[in-house]
Amino acid sequence: MKIKNNIKNSVVKTLMLAVFGAGILFSLSGCEKVANSAKNIQSDWVGLDRKVELYSCMTGKLIKEYRGDVRLNPEDFHGTSLLIDGKKVHTNLCFVIAEIGAKEENITNK
């Protein structure tokens, strides 16, 4: 009987904790910081449909462009390593990464 009560209490506590956690997540779902964190997690775990442009750092000339499922590889300390469609690209060039479908705004000099 005592074991049944212990199991029942632990189930109730687990449910209460889950409801409390869900409430916190729902209350924070509109925050920009939470949205950014979710995007970072999606990028790290799944990858995002992105366009990567590699430029010469000296001349600014476009050297190569990649499109596909792109993830940054945080393990590299020298240069930058990207995983593009599962293939590793290591570079020390200047680069621009843009999510495909993201709004782009023109910058005007005044």
Rank of each mutant, 00 (worst) to 15 (best):
R50V: 03
T80C: 02
A102I: 11
T108F: 14
A98K: 02
C94K: 05
G60L: 12
E105S: 15
F77Y: 05
V52R: 02
V96W: 08
L48T: 06
Q42D: 15
A35D: 02
D69C: 09
R67I: 05
N40M: 13
I41G: 09
Y66G: 01
K39F: 12
A35Q: 13
T59R: 03
L48V: 12
L62Q: 02
G79V: 01
K103Y: 06
S37E: 15
N40G: 11
I24C: 03
I41N: 13
L72W: 11
I63W: 01
G23A: 08
T91P: 02
R67V: 07
F77K: 13
E32S: 14
D49P: 11
W45K: 13
L62I: 04
K33Q: 12
T108C: 12
L82P: 01
I41F: 15
R50D: 10
D44S: 13
H90T: 01
W45A: 05
D85N: 14
L62M: 10
S56K: 12
Y66C: 08
G68F: 07
T91Y: 04
N109S: 12
P74W: 04
V96D: 10
T80I: 07
A102E: 00
D85L: 10
G86P: 10
L62D: 02
K33M: 13
D69L: 13
N73P: 00
W45G: 07
T80P: 00
G68C: 06
G68N: 08
G101I: 05
I107P: 00
E32A: 14
G30Q: 08
F77N: 11
S27Q: 09
V96Y: 04
N106L: 10
A38F: 14
R67Q: 04
G60A: 08
E32W: 06
D76W: 05
T108L: 15
H78K: 15
L28K: 05
Q42I: 14
S29R: 10
L54Y: 12
V96Q: 00
A102N: 05
V89Y: 07
S29G: 09
E65C: 05
V96H: 00
D69H: 03
E104N: 08
V52H: 09
G86I: 03
T59M: 08
K87R: 05
L25Y: 12
I41K: 14
S37R: 12
F77C: 09
S27R: 13
S81E: 01
I97Q: 01
Q42N: 14
G86A: 05
S43I: 07
T91L: 02
K51H: 03
N106G: 04
I107W: 03
G23H: 11
A98C: 04
R71F: 06
R50I: 07
F26D: 00
A35K: 12
L83Q: 00
F77A: 11
I107G: 11
R50H: 06
E65P: 07
E65F: 15
Y55E: 00
A35N: 12
V52A: 03
N40E: 04
W45P: 00
K61I: 07
I107L: 13
V46W: 11
T59C: 05
G68L: 10
H78T: 14
V52I: 14
C31D: 06
S29P: 05
V70W: 02
